[in-house]
Design a protein around this nucleic acid. Structure first.
Length: 446
DNA sequence: TTTTGAGTTGTTCGA
DNA sequence: GTCGAACAACTCAAA
């Protein structure tokens, strides 16, 4: 039997990797990663993060990981022919682009007498598998969650003995190893989170000032860690005292799986309204307001702090993702894909399913969407979830001279603008009413 | 087929 | 300052 190719994509790990097990079972393994210009064109920080993870994976494969660039539909069949492999193993892909791409790759391979072998997926339960009593996909989270849980998932496979074939020519990795990046770092981060931050997660997760989330989103996105591994560990966690925290973390994983399932059934919902009845809502899409939002100078400290964290870290706390998204959609009257695109360009953990459907939830166009009257007040949210103002001061130097919660309302404090912080670009109370009126107009026209 | 209960994350107003 | 009600109906899922 000849060698087989293991084409890594959203599964940059060796542990709990059924596709890699399948490749190893067939004999010698040649690992490859393809830099697809379609996915590598935007966002320098994201590329750097992927490249750092690849450097780690290359070490873990005894240097065997080969890097190629180009359209996978050409690169992969060429590579298979070059190394004499009849099988290319992958983790199944579920995103709209990934599915189209894999279809083209499979046809390219077939034309040279080779096969694309898909095993598993980046999810505990492969999207499309969870169905309701009448065989339809779920459109509401809670029943999905219940069914998803009872569907169950297999025991994580143990790491196979792999014979890597080294010495295949490829491209150099242009970035140095990133500290704290890669499969081992993700496993360590998960273990640390369970040990230090899981207790109280159910309530603390909402506090951006305390920073008590797992910070595993990018590792899950890149597949340095598989959610099945996480769920398996949670199931076996001994401490009953932490039951609410365990349940909450599991539910967050379930949300990720739910949105992947929703997107799988409706690929167009990545950039179009899932629920069409908001399509005739009047949006302003004012470029100047959008730019102010992107750059974190709306004059609402909590919103701006979130946007600046995104700019600086390529990550934003979940509470801020909701608050900033609500502000763009409800206060600035911007159609959600404008915001979703910006998030995707900046977020290291940017995942089309979670991102688009998180935005649609806020905008009221998605599955199980927030009621139209649920409009976040950026000041109230700041006072509630950043009560001492520490998060705002961390990201907005212009407000560091204000003590405590005063940073949330510089307009109420003498000298509040002495640091050069901008005035509010809109009046929340006014724009909230505008948003409500526009929803009412759509309703009455139906 | 019909019915029934329920649905992530909020805000404001008035008693 | 605290608390409950109103903000709308609609659709989904399951019995």
């Amino acid at each position: 039997m000849g060698p087989s190719v293991m084409w890594f994509r959203r599964d940059l790990r060796l542990a709990d990797n059924p596709a890699l097990c399948a490749a190893a079972a067939a004999g010698e393994v040649i690992p490859v990663f393809v830099r697809d210009p379609r996915l590598f064109s935007s966002g320098g920080a994201r590329n750097a993060r992927v490249i750092a993870s690849l450097a780690s994976l290359r070490d873990d494969t005894d240097g065997a990981l080969t890097i190629r660039s180009g359209d996978p539909a050409k690169v992969i069949p060429d590579f298979a022919a070059e190394v004499g492999a009849r099988q290319v193993h992958v983790t199944g892909e579920t995103t709209p682009y990934g599915r189209r791409r894999d279809g083209r790759v499979a046809r390219g391979l077939a034309s040279i007498g080779a096969q694309l072998m898909a095993t598993g997926s980046p999810y505990a339960v492969t999207p499309g598998r969870v169905r309701n009593g009448s065989g339809s996909p779920y459109q509401v989270f809670t029943p999905f969650h219940k069914a998803w849980k009872s569907h169950g998932w297999p025991h994580p496979p143990s790491r196979p003995d792999i014979v890597w074939r080294t010495g295949i020519a490829g491209e150099e990795l242009t970035a140095a190893h990133g500290a704290g990046v890669g499969e081992l770092a993700a496993q360590q981060r998960w273990a640390e989170f369970v040990a230090d931050d899981l207790e109280g997660y159910d309530t603390m997760r909402d506090r951006p000032d305390l920073d008590r989330t797992s910070r595993l989103s990018t590792s899950l996105k890149l597949g340095e860690l598989h959610p099945r591994t996480v769920l398996f560990d949670l199931d076996r966690h001994p401490r009953r005292r932490e039951a609410p925290a365990l349940a909450r973390f599991e539910a967050e994983i379930a949300w990720r799986e739910f949105y992947a399932d929703v997107l799988w059934h409706r690929p167009s919902s990545s950039w179009a309204d899932w629920k069409g009845d908001a399509a005739d809502l009047a949006y302003d899409n004012d470029p100047e307001l959008i730019e102010a939002w992107c750059e974190g100078r709306t004059g609402y400290p909590f919103v701006d702090a979130g946007m600046r964290q995104l700019m600086s870290e390529g990550w934003m706390h979940n509470r801020l993702r909701m608050v900033t998204a609500s502000f763009l959609v409800k206060d600035l009257h911007v159609w959600w894909p404008h915001g979703a695109r910006h998030f995707m360009a900046r977020l290291l953990d940017g995942d089309v399913a979670s991102n688009s459907h998180g935005w649609q939830w806020v905008a009221g166009t998605g599955t199980d969407a927030a009621p139209y009257f649920r409009i976040f007040n950026p000041v109230t949210q700041g006072l509630r979830f950043d009560p001492d103002g520490d998060y705002v001061r961390r990201w907005i130097p212009e407000l560091r001279h204000l003590p405590g919660a005063a940073v949330h309302e510089p307009w109420r404090h003498p000298g509040g603008y002495d640091g050069g912080y901008p005035e509010r670009i809109v009046d929340h109370a006014v724009e909230r009413q505008v948003a409500l009126d526009r929803f009412a107009a759509v309703r009455s026209s139906r």
